[in-house]
């Protein structure tokens, strides 16, 4: 039962994080929130028993892709129109 509560909580937080990442007009904030989203995804997969996938997501999704996004946004405009 405890796992189910965690599962439900993470799933709802995922939707919130996805919406916030796409709503925010500051792109740096958006990419950091996207990192949070990836980390929540990683927690969810660890909870579902997919430890290898969770490890990969923690290193790649929450680590490299956030850094690469921020590195690109520094070379572009930081503000987004929507």
């Amino acid at each position: 039962m405890g796992l189910e509560i965690i599962n439900t909580l993470i799933l709802l937080l995922l939707v919130v994080a996805a919406l916030v990442a796409l709503r925010v007009k500051d792109l740096i904030t958006a990419s950091v929130v996207f990192g949070v989203y990836s980390f929540l995804m990683c927690l969810l997969w660890a909870e579902m028993g997919a430890v290898d996938v969770a490890f990969t997501e923690a290193t790649v999704g929450a680590g490299i892709s956030t850094v690469v996004l921020v590195a690109t946004i520094f070379n572009l405009k930081r503000k987004s129109s929507d």
């Binding site: 430890v51 290898d52 969770a54 490890f55 990969t56 290193t59 680590g63 490299i64 850094v67």
Partner: peptide
């Protein structure tokens, strides 16, 4: 992570990404 991927979570992809992250 790379060498212990046979008995625990991990492997070439994760180890490689961690190594790249250290240079980053």
């Amino acid at each position: 992570v790379l060498a212990h991927g046979h008995v625990s979570p991990g492997g070439g992809f994760q180890g490689g990404v961690l190594m790249g992250a250290s240079f980053i």
